[in-house]
Amino acid sequence: MPDHDALVRTILTLAAERFGPAGATLQPGDDLYDALGIDSLQAMDLLTALEDRFDIEIPDYELQDVRTVASIARVVGERL
């Protein structure tokens, strides 16, 4: 299992790339949907980006109740 903090940093970088200024100021514990105001298409886009970046598959339902970068990092970590 990779280092959790390293995963969080990678996901924060990815959010900054995809969501511009709002993504760049995101903190590990922030609610992703509230902080970025993303819609369903952007959520899908983020899922594809995560899968691409880590070369994994994440079933949608595993992200259903996941709202922070820290918790996304835990889901990603279990698939690596």
Binding site: M44, T48, Y61
Partner: peptide, 10 residues
Amino acid sequence: LTGRSLNAKR
């Protein structure tokens, strides 16, 4: 049976 989505690469 899970309703999950599949990315294009897969």
